[in-house]
Structures are given as C-alpha cells and as structure tokens.
Design a protein around this nucleic acid. Structure first.
Length: 279
DNA sequence: CGCGCAACCTGTCTGC
DNA sequence: TGCAGACAGGTTGCGC
C-alpha cells in the first residue's frame, strides 16, 4: 500500500485536522514501533507539544512539533494512520499507537504486520541528516530532471526495477508505481538501468511523475483494506495498467500481461510493449 | 562500492 | 478439513 501517493494522501487529509492542535496524550501500545527507543521516552517527547505541520519526504510522514521536535513515521507494508474526530470512539484491529489531541480528536497508527516505525528527532539538523542518509531525489520536486536521473543511473548494471525501488536514488517509488511507470515508459523491468539512453530516461522520468500524480489524484491505491486517514478507500487500483493484472490483456496492445520476479518482487509487464532487453 | 537476498511479523491463499 | 509453503505494498543488514 503505502508508497508516495498513499503517504501524500494521508498527509493531505491529516494536515487540516492536526495543524495547530496540541497532543495531550500518547500511548505506544507496541514497543516494537519505536524500538530501540523506549515507548515512554517517545510518549513523553511528543505529549504536550503543538503540531506545527504534517510533512512528507519520500514515504516518510513527519509531525513537526514545537521546539524543533520531529516525529518521523513510516507505514512500511501495512501501516495506516486513521483520524477519529472528537466525540467518536474507535478501537480498530492492529492498533499500535494512539495520539489524543486537545480538541478530543485522535490519530491512530494501525499496522497488521508491525513493520511500521516511529522515531523522535530533536533539531532540524537531525531531521535533515536522517533523510539525507537514506533518501534520494524527491520525484515530484523540481530537482527530478532528466539530467539528474541520468547521473543517478550512469554506470549501474542493476535492473531498472531494482533501481526505482532503491530509495537512496529516487525517494517514494514502490512496487506498484515502479511497474506502472515502466509500462508507461515501455521499458522492460530487467533492463540494466545504466544502458538506457537519454530519450528512454526522459520517458521514464515523465512516466514516474505521471504515475505518482495519477495515484495522488485517485487518493492512492487500496489493496486488501488500506484506508486513507478519513477512512475512505483509494481508487488507483482501478487504474492499474499492468500491476496485479497477470493473464489479462494489455490496455495498449492486447497482449497478455505477464508476471515475473525482479528485484525479489512480483513484477508485472507487457512482453510486447516492454520487449526483453538483449543482454 | 554495487548488488542480491534473507530477515523483520502477521495474515491469507493455494495446493496436496 | 488440515497443514505446509508461498506470497504480500518496504527497509535494513549482511555477504559476495
């Protein structure tokens, strides 16, 4: 579920509810969430502080609190953030963290597989260092140019699919949007990224941006039961061109969509529109 | 340094 | 029906 468009959807929905509110109570019921930091240490660090903004970088979501305290969260595979308005009760399955706000609203972090994480960082430099250490270019930002992509790809023999999934190069693309972008750019997922010529890289850049934008427009993709912060389902899954469509006809040429394994992940593509690279 | 892969944890689905 | 095994949207650490 949560790739850049899903996290951005959550951010946009949480922002208006949270900005300016104060966190009055925090309960981390699953210590694994913030491990190795102790749960009570994280609870104490955020409780009582005002939320100045809700931000996204790659697939990370950050509550920027007063005093330059940052709560950086990652939903990983099955994490979810749900907003519950004041006066309403909610005890969802897989609840791991509960934030109560000064207007009685609540934010609930749920996570079936318990891969999701939360970490508290003190000071803006610490936040910048944290992201710089693990994230590359923001694909919807002005710096995601063809030249930037070419510099990142140069000399690399990794399959383009693996390249797109590596957050240290481009931050925010996951399995769904990698498949969709490669189809739009008509590139085989196993093509070594360093062998792509400039026009292909330009097509890939455009395809990544377009796929992510469409995902955001659809309020993300819902597979299984991902909901966005307001409890609604995203709809991008209805617009998948190849992802999860093995055995179905390609929307462009009618050829049967195939599923292979690339970069250790289930990978969907059209064998005609995305011809196998000559190794 | 670049790359592939197992591990993290839980639930669901498939095949025998 | 029961059960072992594979698989699931992500990231990290280890080995080659």
């Amino acid at each position: 579920m949560p790739e850049l468009p899903e996290v951005e959807t959550v951010r946009r929905q949480l922002g208006p509810h949270l900005t300016g509110r104060r966190i009055t109570r925090t309960t981390v019921s699953d210590p694994l969430w913030c491990s190795p930091a102790p749960a009570d240490q994280v609870e104490d660090a955020v409780t009582g502080r005002r939320i100045e903004s809700v931000d996204r970088r790659g697939k990370y979501l950050t509550f920027a609190l007063e005093d330059e305290i940052y709560l950086v969260m990652h939903l990983r595979m099955t994490g979810n953030l749900l907003f519950v308005p004041g006066g309403h009760e909610a005890e969802p399955r897989f609840l791991r963290v509960r934030f109560v706000l000064d207007d009685a609203g609540q934010v609930l972090f749920t996570d079936q597989r318990r891969f999701g994480t939360g970490v508290v960082l003190a000071g803006h430099d610490a936040l910048t260092d944290y992201f710089d250490a693990r994230l590359g270019v923001e694909p919807l930002g002005p710096e995601f140019t063809v030249d930037a992509l070419r510099a990142l790809a140069r000399g690399r023999r990794a399959p383009v699919k693996a390249f797109l999934l590596n957050q240290e190069r481009v931050a925010g693309v996951g399995n769904i949007y990698a498949d969709e972008a490669l189809f739009r750019a008509r590139i085989h997922p196993l093509k070594p990224v360093g062998t792509l010529r400039r026009p292909k890289l330009a097509a890939l850049r455009d395809a990544v941006v377009e796929s992510l934008r469409l995902g955001i427009d659809s309020k993300g993709a819902t597979i299984d039961d991902f909901r966005n912060a307001d409890g609604a389902y995203g709809s991008f899954q209805d617009r998948f061109l190849v992802h999860l469509r093995a055995g179905e006809p390609c929307t462009r040429c009618g050829t049967t969509i195939r599923k292979i394994r690339a970069a250790g992940r289930g990978t969907y593509f059209c064998p005609k529109c995305q011809p196998r690279p000559r190794v």
